[in-house]
Structure formats: structure tokens, C-alpha cells
């Protein structure tokens, strides 16, 4: 059994994340793999550097898993996020969620990636042809109920 949460500079393993959610009650597993893309808003991306506040990031992943497992009955979720320099095509995040029925697996998986972007203290430093820029998204606040509801709405759309 691998850990349900990980913040690691080592390459991610989809197999390892899947192993963390396996169980006899599962009828479906949905996975999401986020990749480093070679372009962003018209820029040619060369590589990304991910920086994390590791202990809080790991804790935030745990919060997301607890939220999902409370919302979708019988769900088991695992999330591993990579840090450091990632080349084009490498996986930055892997999510797996097992549920009794498939609709819940898809919804919970979508919920997880939306919540990661909201509350996990990880920052992307984009190195592109001609410069570098820190990408900034949401002001992180795990207690922001409106943000949580927005993620739920996207997941269940």
C-alpha cells in the first residue's frame, strides 16, 4: 500500500497512486494526470519548476481527500504532486479515486484537481523562450467555503 498523499521531487508513478486506492468495494477508478505542456498563452514553454511549502501542501492534499471521501460515499482517493524541475511531457500531478459507481469517480476526480488549484501551496515557475514568470492563480484559503462550493459545482456539472 502506497501513501495516499505525496509531495515528491521523484518522477510520479500512476501505478503507485492506483495501488493506494484499491479495495474490494471499488467498482470504478478514475485517474487524472497533469502534464507539463510546451506552450502557455502564446509562449513556448521550455520547462517548469514547481516549488512547494511541503508540509502544508501534504496537509492540504489530505484535506482535499477528506472532503471528497465525505462527499462521495465509499470513495478512496490518493494524490501525488511533483516538485522541482519538470521537462515537457512529464507528470506534475496524479490523482486516483476509487468509488462504488463510475459517476462518482469522475466527479470526485474533477473536484480534486479544482481544489488542488485552490488550496495546495505549490507554485509553478515557468521558463519559456525569452524569459521566466511565476504563474499565480488562487489566493489559498482552505476555509473559503465559496471556493469549495465552486469546485463542487464544476465537479458535478
Amino acid at each position: 500500500m502506497t501513501s495516499a498523499t505525496a509531495i515528491t521531487s521523484a518522477p510520479l508513478s500512476v501505478e503507485a497512486v492506483l495501488r493506494a486506492v484499491e479495495g474490494p468495494g471499488a467498482g470504478a477508478v478514475a485517474t487524472f494526470v497533469g502534464l507539463v505542456r510546451d506552450h502557455n498563452v502564446g509562449r513556448k514553454v521550455l520547462w517548469l519548476d514547481y516549488e512547494a511549502y511541503e508540509p502544508l501542501a501534504e496537509k492540504a492534499l489530505g484535506i482535499i481527500i477528506a472532503e471528497a471521501e465525505a462527499r462521495w460515499a465509499g470513495a478512496r482517493m490518493a494524490i501525488h504532486h511533483r516538485t522541482g524541475r519538470l521537462e515537457i511531457g512529464e507528470a506534475s500531478v496524479v490523482i486516483a479515486v476509487a468509488t462504488p459507481h463510475r459517476a462518482d469517480a469522475f466527479a470526485a476526480c474533477r473536484y480534486a484537481i479544482e481544489r488542488i488549484k485552490q488550496i495546495v501551496p505549490i507554485w509553478k515557475h515557468e521558463h519559456f523562450e525569452g524569459g521566466e514568470v511565476w504563474i499565480e492563480g488562487a489566493t489559498a484559503d482552505a476555509h473559503d467555503e465559496a471556493a469549495r462550493e465552486a469546485a463542487l459545482k464544476i465537479a458535478c456539472a
Binding site: 500531478v93 511565476w134 504563474i135
Partner: peptide
């Protein structure tokens, strides 16, 4: 005490 700029984990554009 940690001060955190807007986060951008996951993948793809944050916005």
C-alpha cells in the same frame, strides 16, 4: 508564520 502568494499547483493554466 508563512506568507503565500496565489498558488498554482496542478497542471495547465491556473486561470
Amino acid at each position: 508564520v508563512a506568507f503565500l502568494p496565489p498558488v498554482s499547483g496542478g497542471s495547465g493554466a491556473a486561470a
